[in-house]
Design a protein around this nucleic acid. Structure first.
Lengths: 108, 108
DNA sequence: CAGTTATATAACTATATAGATATATTTTTG
DNA sequence: CAAAAATATATCTATATAGTTATATAACTG
């Protein structure tokens, strides 16, 4: 599963947030979420497949820790958009307000 | 559809990339992608619902333009992880290599 | 060793989603 | 106005996904 798909699921984002703060076992995550144990294990499987977490067995416990590396892919995706946060809808307005309209007020 | 879900689909990311570069009509996007017209329209519907694009009708054409605002949500999500790109797996190593093990080599 | 704890997985159900084809709607054009 | 063009939508199919319950697999504990 790729990074974007893995993070599309809100519970998975929440699990990753928990793991980001400190390494967690499955049961810790079950307690801190409102998910069943199998549900947590399944989400962790996806996070593992996306390489967003790494597991360290410790007896019967599994410590899940964050691997932030794949998030750089999202950073790279966002990079070209970042400057646009400043200008917002300027591109749209430029493109159209210069073409035909003068002051016709067609609202959204 | 929320931002994360909208961007989980690779074709949708590609469409947004095209729209980012310049406002596009549907047929322009059909030409530039390898998607059918209905497929493009459907993806655009999702991008609209995620508020990632805005539409400006112009006769029978629809000009789709980028609205980068929802991407800030992703930025905010990534923000706490950003510093960790530097330290990578250090958190994991710290947590474990200091707890119990000395040199027991239990591989992954 | 028996029971319990921690985790993973299998089987199933319900829902969402992407794509295709066909069609409807609106606008343009001759 | 009739045909064509641009786009949206409806319907269908196939696939993916999240969740549940039940169970399997280890590891711990008294």
């Amino acid at each position: 599963m790729d990074t974007f798909t893995a993070l599309a699921e809100p519970n998975r984002r929440r699990l990753l947030e928990a793991i980001r703060q400190e390494p967690c076992t499955v049961s810790m995550l079950v307690t801190r979420s409102d998910l069943s144990q199998p549900a947590v294990s399944k989400h962790l499987k996806h996070l593992r497949e996306a390489n967003l977490v790494v597991v360290k067995p410790d007896g019967q416990k599994r410590w899940y820790s964050l691997n932030p590396t794949p998030l750089e892919e999202m950073e790279e995706f966002l990079e070209p958009y970042r400057q646009l946060f400043l200008t917002r809808l300027d591109a749209l307005e430029q493109h159209f307000d210069l073409t035909s309209r003068t002051e016709t007020n067609e609202g959204d």
